[in-house]
């Protein structure tokens, strides 16, 4: 009896989650896909986004993501490797770093937005720019990425490292040939989570990369991210709903595409290096 009840409850919770997911994606897909045309991806928005497309906004979004990811991957992977491979993980120093990362991971994004606005836009003089926005996004995504990458490195049995050492491999060789390849699935998961967090971000970007919906001609130009555009169209522009749905549909497609290609690229490069 108890088993049956438990099984019903478990199935029910899966059903609820699946329903919520399909309700959201279905709603966006039906309302967004019905009227979408190729033009929408390439043309500039007009009448404050009520008409026209999202061309410049897509470009800004990809630039933001590019800056964010290049920093998250390089700094994040470095920190994760340091914390797990180069320092004793119970040392006071790594404890402090881990604690601060956990706190940062839970900080609301608007706080990162205001921090980015003060540090990058004002103190460093980058102004409202894609560079400021990308750096702010990186600050936001780093804690999440480091913690996932680190926990996937930690999950590797120490025998792997000892074995590699016994064969006379250097620390670097061990890392590149043994530990990292094993940790890759976890690192990809962390990367995908970071991309998701960056692409969905609105609050941190309104005050850093800004609101300008023109085609950016440099990284020091202000550029509107897709999520900011969706927020503005649905919450601030009367009559912007249809284009908000279209943009949201594009955002979901983009996320799926990036997640898929990120994982294949990383898997492939690793096989080549091996």
């Amino acid at each position: 009896m108890g088993d049956k009840l438990f099984s019903i409850l478990v199935h029910l919770s899966v059903l609820v989650i699946a329903l919520v997911f399909f309700a959201i994606v279905g709603d966006v897909a039906i309302k967004g896909f019905t009227a979408i045309q190729w033009d929408f991806i390439f043309t500039e928005p007009s009448r404050s986004g009520r008409e026209g497309g999202v061309g410049p906004i897509l470009v800004s979004t990809f630039l933001l993501l590019g800056i964010c990811l290049s920093i998250v991957i390089s700094l994040g992977l470095g920190t994760a490797i340091y914390l797990n491979e180069f320092t004793f993980h119970k040392s006071k120093f790594s404890k402090i770093i881990e604690l601060s990362l956990d706190i940062l991971a839970g900080v609301p994004s608007i706080v990162f937005g205001l921090f980015g606005n003060v540090l990058f836009c004002k103190i460093l003089g980058l102004g409202f720019s894609i560079l400021s926005g990308g750096l702010t996004l990186a600050c936001m995504a780093l804690p999440l990425f480091i913690r996932t990458a680190q926990s996937s490195l930690r999950g590797i049995p120490s025998e792997y490292r000892s074995g590699s050492k016994a064969l006379g491999f250097s620390k670097a060789t061990t890392l590149i040939k043994v530990t990292l390849p094993v940790a890759i699935p976890g690192i990809i998961a962390g990367l995908i989570l970071s991309i998701g967090r960056a692409m969905a971000e609105t609050a941190a970007l309104i005050f850093t990369s800004g609101y300008v919906d023109r085609m950016p001609s440099s990284l020091l130009d202000s550029g509107r991210a897709l999520s900011v555009h969706i927020y503005d169209l649905s919450m601030n522009i009367s009559g912007g709903d249809l284009n908000a749905y279209r943009s949201a549909f594009l955002l979901i497609i983009g996320l799926l595409f990036i997640n898929f290609s990120a994982s294949t690229i990383i898997k492939k490069t690793l096989r080549v290096e091996n």
């Binding site: 630039l63 590019g66 290049s70 991957i73 390089s74 560079l131 440099s218 990284l219 130009d221």
Partner: peptide, 15 residues
């Protein structure tokens, strides 16, 4: 990664 960094730098020269 290097290519990406190079690309971003060259872009910022453009302003």
């Amino acid at each position: 990664l290097l290519a990406l960094v190079g690309f971003t730098l060259s872009l910022s020269q453009f302003s």
